[in-house]
């Protein structure tokens, strides 16, 4: 600013004194890059230390479990991008899991049953969005409350019809089992369709987020609500629709998990309570909103899943895995989600 600016110059560019790498490290892609590096490093180390880690079977299994976590984390990523959190995800997963199993046991045709569950999930998400809109700071608690109510209600519903509570058994159609079980095949290829479904969903979502107006609206809201309002981007609509997506994907995850296990169990969602948040955070989406994305979450999901597999392979139990996850979150967050010092906020 020392030199007066020549206003007649048509194009004034800053000298590009930064290398490409330095630029990437400043940008949002930083998290993606670090996550990918971590993923490669983890995989390499695990392949060396654990026999058979790089086997097709193990990779298939990692991808299968990653697909579930990935789908469960989809909504969480969306919601986190606008600065919210959805803790109802594990409960919606559990509820839809047992309700679908219940419906499979009735005369409802399977596709209709799936549709009913999907609509229910979206409706719960919608409810979450509407109820938490005015109390966004408390969205965490509110979604938790809704989640408890949903899972309680679903269990009461399924219990009243049968003697079994919380677990519902019925014959899962073979085609549906094939979608999500490890031995499933996709057009004759040796991997379960759910992996392909996940990839397809991920691709569509990323395209939608990046290339459409409604996708960009999520980032606009996450970045600056007032400015978004000035551009006629409705905060309410965006907030509610992201929660609706979250409810929908949670319900779909719950359904697919039924295909995976073959029997309804309300507890299937439990591992996803904080793991979805961890996947989002490890991937590089800041919970403050506006940054990150599903691409990052995919990396986060894969990192967590490879890590889990690695830790299991190393003989570490669930407890130690949790500790390692926790220890992983801190440096990842410290890398890209630090808030500025208070003196820069004045």
């Amino acid at each position: 600013m020392d030199q007066p600016i020549d206003i007649n110059r048509k194009e004034v560019r800053m000298p590009t004194n930064k290398t490409g790498l330095a630029r990437v490290l400043r940008s949002d892609a930083k998290g993606l890059l670090i996550g990918a590096a971590l993923l490669v490093a983890l995989f390499t180390v695990a392949s060396i230390l654990v026999d058979g880690f790089a086997s097709a079977n193990n990779i298939r299994s990692i991808l299968l479990l990653a697909a579930f976590l990935g789908l469960a984390s989809l909504g969480q990523t969306m919601v986190a991008t606008i600065g919210g959190l959805d803790l109802s995800i594990p409960f919606v997963i559990g509820a839809s899991n047992i309700l679908l199993a219940y419906l499979f046991g009735t005369s409802v045709p399977a596709p209709l049953a799936l549709l009913i569950i999907a609509v229910m999930g979206a409706a719960i998400g919608f409810l979450n969005g509407v109820l938490s809109y005015k109390i966004q700071g408390q969205a965490l608690i509110l979604t938790l409350g809704v989640g408890f109510a949903v899972v309680g209600g679903a269990q009461i519903f399924t219990t009243l019809g049968s003697q079994y509570s919380g677990t519902v058994f019925s014959q899962v159609p073979a085609w549906f089992s094939n979608i999500a079980s490890i031995s499933g095949t996709t057009f004759g290829l040796q991997f379960p369709p759910v992996i392909a479904i996940w990839m397809l969903v991920a691709f569509t979502l990323i395209y939608w987020i990046n290339r459409t107006k409604s996708g960009r609206a999520i980032y606009a809201i996450g970045g600056n609500r007032t400015a978004a309002a000035r551009l006629r981007i409705s905060e309410f609509r965006t907030w509610v629709s992201t929660y609706t997506i979250s409810g929908l994907t949670a319900a779909i995850t719950g359904c697919l998990l039924l295909g995976f296990s073959g029997g309804g169990f309300v507890g299937v969602g439990d591992p996803y309570l904080f793991t979805t948040v961890a996947a989002v955070v490890v991937g590089g989406t800041s919970l403050l909103g506006g940054s990150g994305g599903y691409g990052a979450t995919i990396i986060g999901v894969l990192v967590l899943q490879v890590l889990t597999s690695f830790l299991v392979g190393m003989g570490l139990n669930y407890a130690a895995q949790q500790t390692v996850f926790g220890l992983l979150i801190l440096p990842m967050v410290a890398l890209y989600a630090r808030s500025p010092h208070i003196r820069y906020q004045i």
């Binding site: 960009r216 606009a220 996450g222 970045g223 400015a227 000035r230 551009l231 506006g290």
Partner: peptide, 15 residues
């Protein structure tokens, strides 16, 4: 009420 600090120059323009 103007900027989207999380977005690029182009996108701030284009929104």
């Amino acid at each position: 009420e103007g900027l989207f600090p999380n977005l690029s120059i182009l996108e701030n323009f284009g929104l």
